[in-house]
């Protein structure tokens, strides 16, 4: 009983801000600053969303599309490369392994905000200003991902399985593909979710390298907040709509992620 109660409270706390976001996005501007705040939805959702998509200068739909595309590509790439490298670091012996792992760990400690100007220099050289490549390519690998996959592979992939496959004459990549990757699925699903969210929420770098005519979703929202800063419910609608794709990804794949975790348990 205590368990259920604790979980219920945790879920209520988790969900409340999202619920409240939805409530305000369905209201008209006159609720701003009211006390007590509105707690039930109103009738204005479609009106607010309509104004959102009509908003000049924000290019909201394009921003959503750009973010969806780049987040998807980055996610697939990060999961693939991270599980590959994580497997190597966890299960394969090779000279320089620990040193290389330390380097990867070290790269996580670089403060991201400072890289903007040198990264922009590179993009100028490559001619990628205002193009999605600038968002996608530097993010194709992730130190966090390698580290996460390594930690996970250590526990989740039994050495005997790898040995058995080797005895059967599998190449190392074959072993990765047929033995390791399936065992890594829960971890990979978690990493995929985090990577997608991370790319979707990225703000500073897209702002630096893109222009408002080819934005990402957070960039669009920022544009919205200046031109329409006084339009409170419009901002709420924007924040809500920008969360919907994440929720969709979550509902579609969340079951798989959680299912994957369960499956990993059975195998281990």
């Amino acid at each position: 009983m205590m368990v259920r109660l604790t979980l219920a409270v945790a879920i209520a706390l988790s969900a409340f801000p999202l619920y409240w976001l939805f409530v305000v996005a369905t209201r008209a501007n006159d609720v701003v600053g009211d006390w007590p705040p509105p707690l039930l939805p109103g009738p204005n959702l479609w009106d607010n969303v309509g104004r959102l998509f009509d908003a000049e200068q924000a290019n909201f739909l394009l921003g959503m599309g750009n973010s969806a595309l780049s987040s998807a590509v980055v996610t697939v790439s990060v999961v693939f490369f991270s599980s590959l490298a994580g497997f190597a670091f966890a299960k394969l012996r090779f000279r320089g392994r620990n040193a290389l792992l330390l380097v990867i760990l070290g790269t996580m400690m670089i403060p991201v905000q400072m890289g903007i100007i040198p990264l922009y220099l590179i993009m100028v050289e490559l001619g990628w200003q205002n193009r999605l490549e600038a968002i996608i390519v530097p993010s194709l690998v992730s130190a966090f991902g390698v580290f996460l996959m390594r930690q996970y592979a250590e526990k989740a992939v039994p050495d005997e399985l790898i040995e058995a496959a080797r005895v059967d004459g599998c190449s190392t990549f074959r072993i990765y593909w047929t033995v390791v990757l399936p065992a890594l699925r829960p971890g990979a699903a978690v990493l995929g979710l985090f990577t997608f969210m991370g790319t979707w929420n990225e703000f500073l770098w897209p702002l630096a390298v893109l222009e408002a005519d080819n934005p990402t979703v957070q960039f669009s929202l920022s544009q919205l907040s200046t031109t329409y800063y006084t339009d409170y419910t419009l901002m709420f609608a924007g924040a809500l709509v920008s969360t919907v794709p994440l929720l969709v990804v979550f509902v579609l794949f969340g079951r798989q992620i959680i299912g994957g975790i369960m499956e990993g348990a059975i195998k281990a």
Binding site: Y120, A212, T227
Partner: peptide, 19 residues
């Protein structure tokens, strides 16, 4: 090419000038 917030525009301007 417009950036809504002056606060967002300034770092970009600096980046253009630096590079």
């Amino acid at each position: 090419e417009n950036i809504g917030k002056l606060g967002d525009y300034t770092p970009k301007l600096q980046q253009w000038m630096q590079t």
